[in-house]
Design a protein around this nucleic acid. Structure first.
Lengths: 114, 114
DNA sequence: TATTTATATAAATGTCCGCTTATATAAGCC
DNA sequence: GGCTTATATAAGCGGACATTTATATAAATA
């Protein structure tokens, strides 16, 4: 309960499909931006944008090698935890609250009360 | 990589401070809405809103007892994983990309190039 | 049946954020 | 120094979502 804000931030950084794809793609390797762009189907600026978000929150670390900039997952444990969560997520089927296709107008129930 | 969407959804449901507070408060117990409202500092509709979000995604399960509706964490494992993530999160200090307090106007660098 | 208590739902609003388009930086090469 | 490649940054737009205010449902009780 100490610092909920930090946990929240971490979770909302992770709560994006594109960022998850990038994280999974990098895995325990080191990838340059161009390699990532080549794999995932996203524009270069968008990839850079997400990389920055994760770097700014220390999820990714950066190394420059000549003109290339390599990203790696700072803490490999993160991938394990994501594995666990992914497992959980698969067993979740959206509990759609039997939303009727058509809905009563607001006055109907009151009208027919008892 | 199978279903990133589900993982994303799970993470973004979790990525909210108020929902985290509620989850932590419930813990391994069963709490009625009114008990939750009494503890966290949120309006009743807001609490209901968040409870619904988590219920619809199977994070919470519901039991009615008379006029009271009790919520419990569906999978206690979730709390453990959150524990791990919380641990990670605490060791993350925002990598604020040494943003200068004042910034160059856009023409400055071009002006002084070389 | 009227009232009170417990909870849910609806509508309206403001904000954050992902994405696109356009442009800037930075390094390497001729 | 100009050119190309690799990457980052900025501005603008649109949609999603947390929150508030107001009201509806549902159960219990008098």
């Amino acid at each position: 309960m100490k610092d909920v804000k930090k946990l929240q931030k971490l979770l909302q950084i992770l709560g994006d499909a594109n960022r998850l794809k990038i994280l999974h793609l990098i895995g325990d390797k080191e990838l340059a931006v161009s390699e990532i762009v080549a794999e995932v189907n996203l524009s270069q600026p968008l990839v850079s944008h997400h990389l920055k978000a994760m770097k700014d929150n220390s999820l990714l670390s950066v190394t420059r090698k000549g003109p290339f900039i390599y990203y790696r997952v700072t803490d490999p444990q993160l991938l394990d935890v994501l594995g666990i969560l992914s497992d959980m997520a698969q067993n979740i089927e959206e509990q759609l609250s039997d939303e009727p296709m058509f809905r009563c107008p607001p006055w109907w129930r009151k009208m027919n009360k008892k």
